[in-house]
């Protein structure tokens, strides 16, 4: 579970970001060394057509692909519009801002401070994970999807 002492920030861009942009900016953000947890948020890109007469057909799109963050493969399942970060402390915020300035150059973006990750497991989390859920991942990923990625060797 999120400890209240860890600050959270959210990077919101004017446009939904292509995988290349996400890869570039995320590598810069991770390189700051102050990131504990990340959520890449945006509208979902399903692997198969979810509704209609074509339901179940494969859904090839350019936006749903694997990117490399800190040397590790990450399967994008959304068209990223928001990057939610939990940081070690507030001192990293200027570095995150600088990373975004370098990484997102084609359009505007802003950075907000606040609480953006779940602080308590909800009833739905209880139904999904049961009473003994790992509290560090509640709200980070969906069960049944590809799950979360642990970026090794960054600490």
């Amino acid at each position: 579970m999120t400890d209240a002492i860890y600050p959270q920030v959210r990077v919101v861009s004017e446009r939904l970001m292509n995988p290349e942009t996400v890869e570039r900016v995320m590598n810069l953000i991770i390189a700051t060394g102050g990131v504990r947890r990340v959520i890449l948020n945006g509208p979902r890109l399903p692997a198969t057509v979810p509704y209609g007469p074509a339901k179940g057909l494969p859904n090839p799109t350019e936006m749903r692909r694997k990117i490399k963050i800190a040397g590790q493969d990450v399967q994008l399942e959304v068209h990223v519009g928001n990057i939610v970060l939990e940081l070690e402390n507030r001192d990293f915020i200027p570095a995150i801002r600088e990373a975004c300035e370098k990484g997102i150059t084609k359009f505007s973006w802003y950075l907000q401070e606040g609480r953006f990750m779940k602080t308590e497991p909800s009833l739905v989390d209880y139904a999904k994970y049961g009473p003994d859920a790992d509290k560090t991942i509640v709200g980070l990923t969906e069960p049944g999807k590809s799950g979360l990625v642990i970026l090794q060797g960054n600490k």
């Binding site: 446009r15 399903p46 979810p50 209609g52």
Partner: peptide, 25 residues
């Protein structure tokens, strides 16, 4: 015809409206 989501979302980098099925490129 189906999966129409996108009219109120931010545009993609190239100015296209979001389409989860990417019917047009």
């Amino acid at each position: 015809g189906a999966t129409v989501h996108g009219h109120s979302l931010r545009l993609a980098e190239d100015g296209m409206m979001f389409d989860m099925l990417q019917r047009c490129v």
